[in-house]
Amino acid sequence: MSVKDHRKTLLKSLILIFICAALVSAPACSSSGSKFSVTYTDLFDTVTEFTAYCSSVSKFNEVSDALQAELLRLHRLFDIYNEYDGITNLAYLNRTCGDSPQKAGKEIIELIDLGLIYCEKTDGKMNIFAGAVTSVWHKYRQSGSGIPTDEELKEAAKHIFAQSVKLDNGTVYFTDKDLKIDVGATAKGYASQIASQMIKSMGVNDFALNIGGNVVVSGQKPDGLWKIGVQDPGGDGLYTKVKVSDISVVTSGDYQRCYEYNGKKYHHIIDLITLYPAENYSSVTVICKDAAAADALSTALFLVSVEEGEALLKQYDAEALWIKSDGTPVRTAGFSAYE
């Protein structure tokens, strides 16, 4: 073998080694970029986490800054506890719509429209117009002790009827002065839907956004699908995990936003028939393409029978896992396919 031939062989082996090295490191540095994460604790009364694969840190900062600004805008718009200068938000509308019709922005009108639809589909069980009742429970939950009296709850329950809400050409009017809107069951999902569209429009496609249990995932991670764990309500650790892409996963659980009084736990999803926290399930997890629907469905399913829930899921092409209060699981066939 001449020196020249030797060089050629060497060159070939070098090229081969480089190809091997490139293949080995490819999954770690995929074309979609590096992993970045950020956490916000000042939005929607919960924790928001955003993870994305971006080409550079400056790109991630650009997107996460825009995300934070957009979520803050929506948070203020859907805030039912505080009013802000120059913003017609739900707190303002709750205070004034009983006196005269008020002009509202398109997001609020859309959220109210969605609320009317769910209220009808669940025979009033999933009712965003029941703020009069949920605010009584909120007051006690915030103080951390005591529970409302039956009189308090029954009085409040006189003012929760969707028929008292009149939408007309972008204005909102309550024929019942004491009616209040509480979008706790739908606002985060709706916001996550709007936010994920915004993130995609900025050119980032591989990301996961979690607004307090409302998860939207898009694209994939370099090592495959996104993995979302569902807590075991009765024990430690996870009950199951789902592997997903381009979809929303939302859980409503009796372990969220709850407090203990006299040894009994009181959570935040109120059954409007008993006026007490709903007791059939420990958690309901919904998987659906539409993030706003996934949020609303997880609460709606928590309040209706499994059969009624299945009928609702079909309308939205969604899947679910119910964990009943005694720990018995029920899942749709489509849900198992994600596990």
Binding site: D45, V47, G229, Q231, L238, T285
Partner: peptide, 23 residues
């Protein structure tokens, strides 16, 4: 898995190979 103290803005999150979020 996480433990969150919203008033103090403290989030404790378990890391490792597993899931991206726990609901």
């Amino acid at each position: 898995e996480r433990i969150i103290c919203l008033p103090n803005g403290v989030v404790i999150r378990v890391l490792g190979e597993g899931v991206d979020f726990v609901l």
